[in-house]
Design a protein around this nucleic acid. Structure first.
Lengths: 229, 229
DNA sequence: CGCCACTCTGTGACTATGTCACCCAGCAGC
DNA sequence: GCTGCTGGGTGACATAGTCACAGAGTGGCG
């Protein structure tokens, strides 16, 4: 039950479906929802596990990824404030195991509702339905995009696009703080390959690398055609 | 409008949600649905296009695949009798473009309903909701599986699993009728690579190849660990 | 300060897969 | 039998992943 008016206001701010929803549904939502705090690194779902709850993020981000037997992984997508993991939703609604891993990347504050409520509201509230469908379609699109990138785009372009994206998202700072390993995991590649590609970019004068950081000197030289990931 | 009692019976047989549905919904469904016949090769949706209708297959199969700029492709999944393309459904429900191609593999007989009805029934009928969610989760799982296979499984195992699967699905015939190109497209690889791998398997005595056909001599020698695709 | 443990990075050799360029084989229509 | 088409074979090369190991930065601690 969420009673604190400030918390309610935050929810309304992040989740449009609550603003457009009928009064009844909104009250029911506040009545049944529970706030939760998860530390960074917390495993929300694991491959093959089942999900009994749907979490709507208020603050922090989670990363959803596939992990192979050999230890390699790919990031499929992230969820941030105002979003929720649809795959979880889909699993809840059809009672299937969750086909990937989800972990907290940062500490997360979220609102949690049970599977039964999720299902019930699908019948009761149009805005809630729209919200859930929107999430499903969005994530589906992202996963399709990842697949597309992995199969059809050369890795150097994907790396360039990723760096560019990170750089812009961070407000075009002088330095990016990340490791080769982290980039590899993001792209579903391996560290050595990323190291080599970065070396190549460094040779071209596009960037300079250091332990745990990458300095973008000339983003134009990266050769990214557009943002892929 | 579907009036023919035989056609109605066929629908009931293929789609469980119609059997468990309320009488009202069933009548509404028959009232609004339309049967359609599509020839083999017909393009149902194309990448980036939008979908105005949801098709429920009664007979025939469709293949949903991703196509890269270079012309390579991967099969994501198929839909057969009693199924429907969820991605279409997700797109309908969230008004997003369709992120892949869908074509008829064989001639298809289907029942088509408009996007507005699809949305409306989501509110009105629990069995319909279950049906749609089930499809979404199932396809989502298949796409995740493809991603997993592409990233983490060696191609020779994927090929072996595919051959084994085809062979079993066809009732363990003496011959499989397919081309190297078709197998490549299925796995998201290229013809030359498949040719080489098949050559290797032939060398091992697992099969014999001929123009447009593959004879499985000893399925055990394929080396498939389990069915991947 | 110097040592140590740890993480991150660099590199070479090798394998797997994809791409390109051709050529050849089987089959159908004329 | 010619011809054209589709399917198959192959070598050379490019890209990407794996393995093994060396070395470089960093922080804790005596």
């Amino acid at each position: 039950m969420i009673q604190d008016p400030q918390q309610r206001a935050r929810l309304l701010e992040h989740f449009a479906f609550l603003r457009t929803a009928e009064r009844d549904f909104r009250e029911a939502f506040f009545d049944r929802a529970v706030t939760a705090r998860l530390p960074a690194g917390h495993i929300i779902c694991h491959d093959g596990g089942s999900c009994a709850q749907l979490a709507l993020a208020l603050a922090g981000t989670a990363r959803i990824y596939k992990l192979g037997e050999n230890g390699r992984e790919v990031t499929l997508y992230r969820i941030g404030p105002g979003e929720s993991c649809v795959v979880t939703a889909a699993c809840i609604l059809s009672a299937r195991p969750f086909p990937a891993f989800a972990v907290c990347e940062t500490a997360i504050e979220a609102v949690v509702v049970g599977a039964a409520d999720v299902r019930r509201w699908m019948a009761a509230s149009a805005p809630w339905r729209e919200f859930v469908f929107g999430l499903v379609a969005e994530r589906l699109g992202e996963v399709f995009g990842v697949l597309d990138a992995i199969l059809f785009k050369p890795l150097d372009q994907r790396l360039a696009a990723l760096l560019l994206h990170r750089w812009q998202a961070a407000g075009r700072p002088a330095m990016l703080h990340t490791t080769h390993q982290a980039l590899a995991v993001e792209l579903g590649s391996s560290r050595e390959v990323i190291t080599r590609l970065l070396g190549e970019l460094e040779g071209r004068g596009a960037l300079r690398t250091g332990r745990g950081r990458i300095e973008l000197l000339d983003p134009g030289l990266l050769g990214a055609r557009d943002t892929i990931d």
